[in-house]
Simulated scan of single mutants.
Amino acid sequence: MSDQRQPVTMDADEAAAFAAEVFDRARQGDAPMLARLLENGLPANLRNQKGDTLLMLASYHGHLEAARVLLQHGADPAISNDNNQQPLAGAAFKGNLEMVRLLVEQGAEPDAAAGDGRTALMMAAMFNRTAIVDYLLAQGADPKRRDARGIDALGAAQAMGAADTTQQLQALA
């Protein structure tokens, strides 16, 4: 008896249901299932109808092990979704320093900007994430970089009333 696998065929509805389940696994942080799927040929940079990658969903929802598995299988941390958001900015927004560290260690540019020009540093500053601001600055993020509206990290912090990061960024000037 041959040990060769036969290709699986499915209709459009089955394929859509399978894809929805895969994205739910990333959102829920099911690292073991994601690892099995990736080892069996699932593309690491698969995107949903909103342009979110599996890595975007895992990182945004704080699932370190799932994000680590995806990165080990070639997930690109620089892919923006349809709203011009990147995984690093999402992790900064959520205040997840460990995820920010993982993404930067695995190749995310600390100063990368999506289409609107916003960086993870700006997101961290806006939401008073002082530890993430410190980390991103130490990794080379430019506090003077401006988004498409001309606002830098300090301006973003001030606009949101983020007192701690406003003080932190003012001290750099």
Rank of each mutant, 00 (worst) to 15 (best):
Q106T: 02
M123V: 02
E105W: 05
A31R: 09
D30Y: 02
Q158S: 13
N96Y: 09
A125S: 11
A159H: 06
K50F: 14
P87C: 04
R5E: 15
N40V: 02
I151M: 11
Q168G: 05
N48I: 04
A114D: 10
G29K: 07
D147K: 01
A162V: 02
D30Q: 13
L42C: 00
P77N: 05
A35K: 12
L154K: 07
H63N: 11
R149M: 15
G29L: 01
T166W: 08
A173E: 11
R25I: 06
I79V: 13
V104C: 08
R68D: 13
F93W: 14
D30G: 01
D134N: 13
V133M: 01
D3N: 14
M10S: 06
R36Y: 10
G150S: 09
S59Y: 00
E98K: 10
D3F: 14
L55D: 08
T53W: 06
L38W: 14
M33A: 14
I79D: 02
N48Y: 05
A91S: 15
A31G: 01
R27T: 12
D152T: 12
L172S: 06
F127I: 08
D152P: 12
L70M: 04
A15D: 13
D147C: 00
L154V: 11
H61D: 14
L97D: 00
G150N: 09
P110V: 05
G51I: 01
N128S: 02
G161M: 00
S2G: 15
Q170I: 12
A114S: 12
Q139H: 01
G95N: 08
H61E: 14
M1K: 12
A157T: 03
A66I: 10
A26H: 05
A156D: 04
A108Y: 07
D152V: 07
D52F: 10
D111K: 06
T53I: 03
A16Q: 11
R47M: 09
S80Y: 06
T9A: 12
P77M: 02
A113P: 04
A108S: 07
Q168W: 04
A124I: 02
D152I: 11
G117E: 04
N45V: 05
D134T: 13
L154W: 00
D142K: 04
G117H: 06
Q170W: 07
T130P: 02
N128C: 04
G41T: 13
V133L: 10
N45K: 07
A162G: 03
G51N: 04
N48M: 05
V133N: 02
R101Q: 13
A138K: 10
R47P: 06
A19I: 15
